[in-house]
Design a binder for these strands. Structure first.
Lengths: 166, 166
DNA sequence: CATACATATATGCAATTGCATCCATTTTGA
DNA sequence: TCAAAATGGATGCAATTGCATATATGTATG
């Protein structure tokens, strides 16, 4: 499976990235780092609070549901969800436990590989994804969308994305 | 004390911010939200990993040490640290337990208010702050600083800051 | 000035996360 | 072909976090 090759390559490239202990960031870089951390934390806290106020589960649940809903046949392998959501493997495994317990997803065997599983979203899961989006989307709009024009948002998103590509 | 007035004002303003459930974010806003979350998470994970690889404590410890080192007389009240670092009160309280146990800070009574405490950074704490910065700074530079020019960083930091002001 | 309310900090307990490791299955390659 | 290495996923246990509440003290109000 192609994923194997990719993974080994990724790991190998990560291993040789030992920090150069001699360099120091510029004041501008440091300001950007702090701004990035603070902005994300404050917005995330505000949005998570809106979800909690509406008696909805935390964002991680939404991320998983969204990936499943948009996936073909409403199913993915755990490692695919992991890659999309950036959740750690063991955290995802347990998040899926909770979501399965809540009836939002189901796990089934993956016949082509005895180690694997399918994770499928249930009807209740689809309904929950939509219910969460009602609140989540409104919250994103209120805390973020209202603060800037779409053109600025797009440009800013592009600049942020460049920080982690290449 | 001024802090009282501020707090009540902040709480009051937060309480009336009920989400408008009817609005939905634009595609641009949603892209920005996702970019912000992903970029912050990926960079933070990379940097925390560098710290761990150097056998240093997590970033929260640095944030507290930094606030104390820069503060007059190397001391602050817990609620001041809380405000600067965005740590939750109970989390800070326990973080300070651990840091005190590690000999990096000390708690002393605050005579002017029987409820309060001083948190002071020790010599070991100052040394640790510098030791962490060696690695942390290099890591910021490598993961972030190298990706863009200072002018771009400054501009980007300004745009991010605008998202949480007003 | 007494009573109710606010503030500063701490803490018990449950839920989540991190870490290491385990298990079962592929895949690789001598 | 078969042992060694890699993968996909789960799990035991410790550390951290979240949540509610406790404790002590300060401030305001009738």
């Amino acid at each position: 499976m192609l994923a194997i090759t990719v993974k080994m390559h990724v790991i190998a490239s990560m291993l040789d990235s030992s920090p150069d202990q001699t360099r120091t960031p510029s004041a501008a870089t440091t300001r950007l780092w702090i701004a990035l951390m603070r902005t994300q934390r404050i917005l995330l806290a505000a949005i998570e609070q809106d979800l909690k106020a509406a008696d909805l589960p935390p964002l991680g649940w939404y991320d998983v549901l969204w990936e499943l809903v948009r996936a073909e046949k409403g199913r993915l392998r755990p490692f695919e969800i992991e890659a999309h959501t950036l959740l750690a493997q063991h955290n995802l495994s347990r998040l899926l436990d909770r979501m399965e317990e809540a009836g939002l997803v189901r796990r089934e065997v993956f016949p082509q590989d005895g180690r694997g599983r399918w994770v499928l979203v249930t009807e209740a899961g689809r309904a929950m994804q939509q219910r969460i989006w009602t609140v989540y989307g409104a919250s994103i709009e209120r805390h973020l969308g209202e603060k800037l024009a779409d053109a600025d948002a797009d440009q800013l998103a592009g600049q942020l994305a460049r920080l982690i590509r290449g």
